[in-house]
Design a protein around this nucleic acid. Structure first.
Lengths: 232, 232
DNA sequence: AAAATCCGTCACAAAACTGTCGCGCACCGT
DNA sequence: ACGGTGCGCGACAGTTTTGTGACGGATTTT
């Protein structure tokens, strides 16, 4: 997750979404604007937002439906969602909360109150999310669920390969010598041949291979290995 | 953690606290009642509650102060807090949220709305704990009726297998070590062999087997087990 | 009190993973 | 172009981890 949290706003009224964008950006957030529910789902897929503001009433795909779909997808299952609703009727609010929204706010609302709610909701979710899943390029590693996936495809790794990838992804772009990797991944007290690292890197590479995607692990001759997302 | 969540209610009006106790118990929660803020802190220390309902206005120690102190203590730092407030004024609500409360509800409120908020707030912490019946994939577990079924077919489980499945389904996708499972399902003080977990997982799997349906329990070598609904 | 369940442990088999070796190719400096 | 060093990779045998049937004792039900 980058420094500035990304907020996805799904709102069909131009006046309101512009106002929201202006104020949220001013508050230090990055903002993605969606005009309707479908848009919102597409945008959420491009970059997983850190929080979603979704209007209850929207053409085509309603706020509730958006919520449900976001919850269904693995990447966005735990993203906090705040529902914007014009009606103050209790039944609707409850339905919103039960569908999986984390909070709702009734229009019209003040920016101050919205900010407070955003802070409250994010404080709750973010710490858990921040450490748990690590992404770089198209590879994501979930340490709590012990899952690795590339472009959404699940990848099976043995324990050692998992720890190795985990360690490399902690410091993308940085080159580690085989000795450093042995210390970090195997443990300082374990004695194994240095070349063992090569073998595991090889296995890791093979496992990460998805059609023609570039190899995310870079060999630096006579230095070591590093996890790189793009450059060459 | 036991099956029924413990809710700590800090409220000085007798009429309301009695009403809350009655309804919450009726809804399947365990309830601890505190007459004032000090009481609340003492009770929270005795057994860490799963959620706290605290009145904004209370003699001696105010709701805000209770919130602050709960957040300060390690055991209760992440317990969700819902603030009960008589005033509808925005400034106060914001202050409440910023202090660390996760939500607030304005008096007078209906029990239905309160329950929805409790479920919503608890879902953030432990995604499914709030519900009486829990479903993931084609498996459903009814913690009130102690019933488990898969694809509509009733399944009989022993008490330990039931608690094990219950715990795993609380946190779908998350991997637990055998030690963690022993703590959570058997109890921290019970001494049994670690491999006992394997045996019960095995029994659970056998019980859950319905023709060719995929095994919902995933083994993560040298890490533990997790309940998974989808991928393999 | 007898019967039926349920529980924890063990031992053994199956499965998964690991470390090492050796060979051949790639790359580098000369 | 050439020798040398570094690296990728398939093979393999040993080790660790997990699945599971069996069993005696405890607990609950009938």
């Amino acid at each position: 997750m980058s420094i500035k949290p990304l907020i996805l706003v799904a709102e069909d009224e131009d006046a309101l979404s512009t106002l929201l964008e202006y104020n949220l950006v001013n508050e230090g957030y990055r903002v993605a604007i969606a005009r309707d529910g479908e848009d919102a789902l597409v945008l959420a897929r491009e970059e997983t937002p850190d929080l979603v503001l979704v209007d209850w009433m929207m053409p085509s795909v309603s706020g509730i439906e958006v919520t449900r779909q976001l919850r269904a997808r693995h990447e966005t299952a735990n993203v906090p969602i705040i529902m914007l609703t014009a009606r103050g009727e209790e039944a609707d609010r409850i339905r919103g909360l039960d569908t999986g929204a984390d909070d709702y706010i009734v229009k019209p609302f003040s920016m101050t109150e919205l900010f407070a709610r955003i802070r409250a909701v994010m404080r709750r979710i973010r710490p858990a999310l921040a450490d748990d899943v690590l992404e770089a390029g198209d590879v994501s590693i979930d340490r709590v669920g012990h899952r690795v996936s590339r472009q959404g495809v699940d990848i099976h790794l043995g324990p050692t390969e998992f720890r190795l990838l985990d360690y490399l992804m902690q410091h993308p772009g940085r080159v580690f010598s085989r000795e450093q990797l042995l210390d970090a991944v195997w443990g300082a007290d374990v004695y194994v041949e240095v070349r063992t690292v090569d073998v595991h890197v090889g296995r890791l590479r093979k496992a990460l291979k998805i059609d023609a995607r570039p190899d995310p692990i870079r060999t630096v001759r006579s230095a070591g290995y590093s996890f790189d997302t793009d450059r060459r």
